[in-house]
Simulated scan of single mutants.
Amino acid sequence: MKYLLAGSLIAVGLYTAPPVQAQSIDLRPGGPNIDLRSRRQRERDFDREEARRDMRRDERRRREIEEDDDDDDRPRRRY
């Protein structure tokens, strides 16, 4: 009877355990990193950061072009 009860408790515990696929474990030189976000959330954050990086690059280019327009002696950059 003890074995039946122990086996059923273990089976219920394994059945109700949360899925592990939502975790990401990275082993890097700086130490291990455990990310509890889902794959979709990580991809969304990556896309968001990439869009921000593109916006910052475009803003820098726009500023450089404006600075070039202000200074008539310097040649203009072409992109």
Results as ranks from 00 to 15, higher is better:
D71A: 04
E59F: 13
A11W: 11
D54P: 00
M1G: 12
M1C: 07
R56M: 08
D71N: 10
V12Y: 07
G7Y: 02
L27M: 05
G30K: 05
I65T: 10
D68W: 07
L14N: 09
R39H: 07
E49T: 10
R76Q: 12
A22Y: 02
I65A: 11
E67G: 13
I10C: 09
D70M: 12
D58E: 10
I10G: 05
G30S: 09
A6V: 13
R76P: 08
Q41F: 00
R48Y: 09
D26E: 10
E50T: 11
E43Y: 04
V20Y: 11
D72A: 14
S8N: 10
D71S: 03
E64F: 10
V20S: 03
A17H: 09
V12K: 09
R78S: 10
M55H: 12
R74H: 13
D71T: 04
A51E: 06
V20H: 06
F46Q: 10
P18T: 01
Y79N: 06
Q23W: 07
I34Y: 01
R62N: 10
D45Y: 04
D47Q: 05
E64W: 08
D47Y: 03
D73R: 11
G31H: 01
Q41Y: 00
Y79Q: 05
Y3K: 14
G31S: 00
A51R: 04
E64K: 15
V12Q: 04
E43T: 09
D71L: 05
R56Q: 08
M55R: 14
R62T: 11
G13N: 06
L36K: 03
P18C: 01
G7S: 07
S8Q: 13
D58M: 05
P19L: 03
R39E: 02
R77E: 13
P18F: 00
I25D: 00
D69H: 12
D73L: 14
P19S: 08
R52T: 05
L4V: 06
D70E: 14
E66L: 13
R53G: 07
S38M: 01
D72S: 14
Y15C: 12
R78T: 08
R28A: 03
S38W: 02
Y79E: 08
A11Y: 12
Y15D: 05
L36Y: 03
E49Q: 11
E64M: 15
R42W: 00
D69I: 14
R77T: 12
R40P: 04
I65K: 06
G31F: 00
R56C: 04
R57C: 09
Y79R: 08
E59H: 15
R60S: 13
R28Y: 02
D47L: 04
D69C: 12
E67N: 15
D72Q: 15
R37N: 03
V12S: 06
K2D: 08
Y15H: 15
